[in-house]
Amino acid sequence: MSAPQAAHAEPKAAAEGEWEPKLIVFCCNWCSYAGADLAGVSRLQMPTNFRVIRTMCSARVDPEFVLRAFASGADGVLVLGCHPADCHYIGGNYRTRRRIALLRVLLEQYGFNPDRLKLEWVSASEGAKFQKTIKEFNETVKELGPNPLTEE
């Protein structure tokens, strides 16, 4: 039947042959993307199984993007934005946090573990927080296992 089973590559085996989740990380242009960049230039070590999608503001992350990410086989979705009071567009991140909270309830109704979706604030100077967030989220999703839509 027609459960959404978008084409995607098999999860890449890590060095030890362990399953690695596929993570999508939405980063807002003004804080979190710069934070990710800083983590990169500072050569902070972190897992590499995530793909960053840059949006102008975390509020640009339409719930539809998140649902599509899961339908296309993402095992976890991380939304990163500026800290409260720091959004470049004044209150974008306040909308984001309301949407993500509601979306987590919806995902649970769909049968997903809501911990597959996480919101975190990462500023431009927080390269280390970016690293820590990725590491921790990767661990959480690893424990959850593959996205139930991609397993049959």
Partner: peptide, 24 residues
């Protein structure tokens, strides 16, 4: 509330079943 008429045509389409139950 939001999918009263459209769940089968939504992006996710139907309920899924997680293999493992909540971690922490």
């Amino acid at each position: 509330t939001f999918y009263c008429y459209t769940m089968p045509k939504s992006i996710i389409k139907r309920k899924v079943v997680e293999k493992k139950k909540p971690v922490k």
